[in-house]
Amino acid sequence: MKRWLPQPLFSLSLWGVWLLLGNTLAPGQILLGGLLALALPLFTVRFWPDRPRLRRPLRILTYILMLLWDITVANLTVARLILHPTRKLRPAFIRLPLDLGNDFAIVVLTNTISLTPGTVSADLSLDRRSLLIHALDVDDVEQTIARIKHRYERPLQEIFAC
């Protein structure tokens, strides 16, 4: 099992992407996609030196749902900030200390930060211990950091077991 299917979740997403690309559920495509989904991870497994271990895969779903909701909110927030000329914006750089030990998890967190209300990730420190964030309008730096750590970093730690 482990030998023939080294990355079950990767295989599953490949299969999904294949069927979505074809926009079809024809039996031939399902079969072909399934074969590719089996073969590609087998051939590429050696290019993944430290692939993330997923401890709680189902938690990903709730994370994605939460992210989609937050993206919608983020859009409304930023739209409001852009359209209000009278309101004085208080942009700031924030340094967020990272507790994630896995590169992939850091990438996911970085993307999440860029997609959610009022923050864009700007730079990762060389030792991967802190992330520089640019925020469009900040009231309280501590509060922003606490929100990111609580809402996004904690779940990612659970998902990737790091």
Partner: peptide, 26 residues
């Protein structure tokens, strides 16, 4: 449109990044 307006009228480069990453997504 709002994203593009943001891109045009926000004052500096870092703030301008917020327009295209967010409003455009939605």
């Amino acid at each position: 449109l709002i994203g593009s307006i943001g891109l045009a009228r926000l004052p500096d480069l870092f703030m301008r990044l917020h327009g295209p990453t967010k409003a455009t997504t939605l």
